[in-house]
Design a protein around this nucleic acid. Structure first.
Lengths: 342, 342
DNA sequence: CTGAAAGCGCTAACAT
DNA sequence: ATGTTAGCGCTTTCAG
């Protein structure tokens, strides 16, 4: 039916081996003339090597399996995941790898990986941190199967992971406010179990501790990550006798409520209060005024994860546990204090 | 190295053929005893068939290729795409198919599909409408390669596509407002080139035309789909002597600006003005008051696309050009008029 | 009810 | 510089 390597060999008046060598660019010992003949035959017959036969003969798939939650609303609740995916895809495709995508959760993941490993269906794994489990961790470190976890697992493990440096992001946020002249900086964040929020708070605390204006404990409010809670906490914050002059919100949802509360209190942003948050999405740049953010380049995190995984597939060493540091300060009206001209 | 079908055959004291039959459930002529022996050997040796060899021998991949834009920010700008992907994945995985994901744009897509087709790498395609092109369309209809386009292509074609029924959604929105007692309904939408907005407007127009309160032309405002433009248009709308008592916004961004404008004018939602929009994301349910929406179940669209594609792969008939009608009215405070108790 | 044998299309070791 | 040959691990005819 379809044209095979033999057809090309016949047309080019040579052997399948030679054709194979030419199309795989192993031409150290093939005459230019033969090479040309093969290329011409390939073109004339419109030959495309059968991918399945290739994978089989090579005993390698050049395929990577991506695992994350794909339940309804996943894309709306966690678009970051797909942004990381996009970054990874660019690297993998660039290096001739395919990317298989599959739904998983913490209970199903082990069986899926077990199967993918044993059936030699893929050469490596990219796994979102939200679906890893301890049994999976044990299995991966035992088999030394190439993998990169996207995000830091919430338990100790020997797995290879890559995460964003949220502590650094908090540090950047705090320093920006200090530079703009704000002195009484507050933090509105998620619950303590919210690791992202906690890390951002750590960074803020550490930056301010190193300044003349350490973070005051009564300026730290934590709650659910909803606009309602953000509003409630901001109201609490500004009901105090000693008010802050700037607020760092741990995420967009909290910021949305916080800004609303500030508006209702008749305070002006950025003159009376500076406000900033993290991630340029989905609300920060739509708000009024647009918010200064420390933006996180998650696409780039995917790129790095892809590169790392390919390295691991190449030479089977592991131990990559890194924070990538691709935060990016975007200054907008919400922290641009009108300063006296110098 | 890895355990193969021969190992299992030896352990079960039978032939590879029989083992193959058992693991593929073609047992119409195998003694129960043999079946049991094979199963036991499989378990004992922890045998998993080599996926590559299988694909090769079967000459079929049980793999589908998904093509869409995966450039930086794609996941933030168009989370719908990944929601559709999630729906499709659930069906494909359920039927034993794999899902390959790859970045494409209107210029690269033809070469990618050509290659995937010729190399027999995949059995079918799912292609987001934003990356299809005329050459691709020609190629697909010529080869009759199984495919489903997600969304309606913006040119006439013989391709198979599935799309949301935005006209129906507009109709639903308008009828809801009528039922709530609103009579002077306005529409704020995107430019005429914005097909989604245009279709929603068509639906609104058609529903109102069938009612006692046809859509008045001066109540239709179109502009860029940004909060700023939504605000500007709403201001224009309510600066008119004859004001509307309800506004349908073609999308979330416009609604965000529209609600802000209404608030600044001192009008109350829903008492003075009813407001609704489409899609429950990202702003509609975060706004104050939360907005009534006609929500679009894009996950379900992915499910339907997956099912349709598998059917096409089964028997190679085409011509599926359908609108799916999975809109869903979510009533919230923004249109709940205080009505006299009856 | 079971097994031998012939591929599937390509790659790679080994000759020449 | 090129060709021969032997697989890769499974499925599937076909013969018994």
């Amino acid at each position: 039916m379809a044209v095979t390597i033999k057809d090309v060999a016949r047309a080019a008046n040579t052997s399948a081996t030679t054709v194979s060598r030419v199309i795989n660019n192993q031409c150290y010992s093939i005459s230019q003339e033969t090479i040309d003949r093969v290329h011409q035959a390939v073109r004339e017959l419109n030959y495309h090597p059968n991918a399945r036969a290739r994978d089989f003969a090579r005993q390698s798939t050049r395929t990577v399996l991506w695992l994350c939650s794909l339940r309804p609303n996943a894309a709306f609740e966690n678009p970051h995941m797909f942004e990381i995916l996009s970054g990874a895809e660019s690297i993998l495709t660039g290096k001739g790898y395919r990317l298989l995508v599959r739904n998983a959760d913490t209970t199903s993941v082990t069986a899926i990986v077990e199967e993918a490993y044993a059936s030699q269906e893929v050469d490596g794994l990219l796994i979102h941190a939200s679906v890893v489990s301890r049994p999976l961790s044990a299995m991966l470190t035992r088999t030394r199967f190439p993998h990169v976890v996207l995000g830091k697992p919430d338990f100790e493990s020997q797995m290879c992971w890559i995460d964003i440096n949220n502590v650094l992001s908090g540090d950047i946020a705090a320093n920006h406010l200090l530079e703009e002249g704000y002195k009484k900086i507050a933090f509105i964040g998620g619950r303590e179990s919210d690791r992202i929020s906690s890390h951002r708070l750590d960074g803020v605390r550490q930056a301010l501790a190193a300044s003349a204006h350490p973070l005051q404990e009564q300026f730290i409010w934590l709650g659910e990550s909803t606009p309602q809670e953000g509003k409630r906490m901001a109201e609490g914050l500004f009901a105090m006798a000693d008010r802050p002059d700037a607020v760092i919100c741990a995420n967009n949802s909290l910021a949305l409520g916080c800004v609303e509360a500030i508006g209702r209190l008749g305070l002006r942003i950025p003159r009376d209060v500076g406000v900033m948050t993290f991630d340029n999405y989905p609300y920060a740049n739509m708000m009024n005024p647009p918010l200064t953010v420390v933006d996180i380049d998650v696409y780039d995190m995917g790129v790095q994860a892809g590169r790392t995984l390919l390295q691991m597939i190449g030479k089977k060493n592991q131990q990559v546990q890194t924070y990538t540091t691709t935060s990016n300060l975007i200054v907008r009206a919400s922290t641009r204090r009108e300063r006296r001209k110098s």
